[in-house]
Simulated assay, not measured.
Amino acid sequence: MTQQPAGIDLETSLGYLLKEASSALRSAMEAVLRPLGMSITHYSCLELLAQRPGLSNSELARGAFVTRQAMNVLLQSLERDGFVTRPAQPVAGRVLPVELTATGRRQLATASAAVKDVEDRMKSTLNAGEQAMLGDLLARCVTSLREQPASAAQPAGSRPRS
């Protein structure tokens, strides 16, 4: 009796499908943001600041899924180009809260409309109930992965290495 090796069937793997969807979404977003002179991280930073004014470099980095160093470089560029402002001196501790300028808000409005069009296209074959369900299911997947440490998610019958 030959046993098949345990593996992932890419046709049915949810992880693979999510990665494929993420890659397609990223490509579509890059395509609409590039003509605006923006990257996805640039857009994400402006969107985060519009929705949560005064975030710190570290908070922006976490929200945009980049390192603090990468966010600091981006913020310096955005500040130089007049899209954001930061106080010269820290307000508390070492935190320099970032704020959008009017120029940053105008650029964000254009970019947000383009990104919304991409998201609308992505979900165009889903009805309202399916869209809500997909959002709920994805949020639950994220919660499960963040709440359950990888070591606790050992496959049945396997043992951790000693």
Rank of each mutant, 00 (worst) to 15 (best):
L96T: 06
L74T: 04
A109K: 14
V142T: 12
T101W: 09
H42W: 04
D9N: 12
A114T: 14
R86G: 11
I40Y: 00
L134H: 03
L126D: 06
K116I: 14
P155D: 01
R34N: 09
V91I: 14
R86H: 01
S56Q: 09
L100F: 11
S124V: 01
S56A: 10
R159K: 15
S27K: 15
S151G: 02
R121A: 14
E30K: 14
A92W: 11
A64H: 04
R94D: 08
M1D: 03
A139M: 11
V142H: 02
R105M: 03
R106Q: 14
L33R: 15
A61Y: 10
Q3C: 02
A31P: 15
S44K: 15
L33N: 09
L60G: 07
N72R: 10
A150Q: 13
V91K: 03
N72Q: 10
A150N: 03
K19F: 04
L100I: 03
P35L: 04
L74C: 06
V98D: 08
V118H: 13
A31C: 02
T2I: 12
R94H: 13
A61S: 08
Q69C: 07
S39W: 00
E47I: 06
A150H: 04
L78G: 02
V32N: 00
Y16T: 04
L46N: 10
R159E: 13
G93I: 10
V84L: 09
L10C: 12
M71E: 11
Q76G: 06
L10V: 11
L10H: 12
R106L: 09
S77G: 06
L36G: 07
L14T: 15
G129D: 13
T12R: 06
A132K: 15
Q51V: 02
E130Y: 08
